[in-house]
Amino acid sequence: MTRETAVPLHEMISGAKEEILTEWIKNQLSDKSRSKGVPEASLRNSSSEFIRLFEEAITKGNVDDIEKPEWEEMRHMLAELSATRASQGSTPSDTAKFIFSLKEPLFARLTPEKGQGNTEASAAVWQLSLLLDKLGLYTAETFQRTREAIIRRQQKEMLEMSTPVIKVWDGVVAVPLIGTLDSARTQIVMETLLQKIVDTGSRIAILDITGVPTVDTQTAQHLMKTVSATRLMGAECIISGIRPQIAQTIVHLGIDINDIVTKATMADAIKEALARGGWSFERHLESV
């Protein structure tokens, strides 16, 4: 919706640019609720930058759609602003408020020029209001997108970090599982474990579930999958770290894991693995 106003918006803005800017900055600085994290200098800078780009984009004639190429520079600037403000500790509403606060000095220019109740003036107010709303929301959106990207990255890192495969002894690897065992985790555990088995030529893999908070049918299913994949590779799996409650849950649920070797603790599992590998140990008490 583009309605022609008698005095084009951009002319009005460029005519009173300095006035609007000073008033805007004054308003922002006097605002008590303003976030203290943003220094005055950077506020002045970003305000004048915003007005400059705003004028530029409006002069090009497009006042409805900020997705258009005319607004490219503005979008870029807002994305940067949103990111720096977020790192300075501002909330997304603070950043959006920064843009919404331009309405006051801007509208103040519109109405006296054209008089109260002027339809043209109100049309211009409406148009500008819509535009500034869009720009404000854009900063909030960018903020959210940046945060989501961070969350996704951290999630991925956590997944990768939470599944270390440890070489315990020649031919023995162990995976201490920590956290809930869902299908995505199982997939990563399987991949890293099987690769490690190939790399180290291990015959025995120990899956330690001490850090798995609960075991339900699905978790058990995932464990069984890992065990059978390991078997297909030609290695044997021992499940260790089964807490008493978990043992009871497994029995209650009627999950059949009869053909899997299970041990109460990791130590027992390592002992068993070494014994199978033909290792034996002796403790010399006199040297203690």
């Binding site: 997939q187 399987m190 991949e191 099987l194 088995i197 059978s228 994949a229 297909l232 590779m233 030609g234």
Partner: peptide, 15 residues
């Protein structure tokens, strides 16, 4: 006796 199965194959077979 089946020997030398690749990890990807083992995962596929179980899946």
């Amino acid at each position: 006796v089946l020997v030398g199965m690749q990890p990807a194959i083992a995962i596929t077979i179980t899946e």
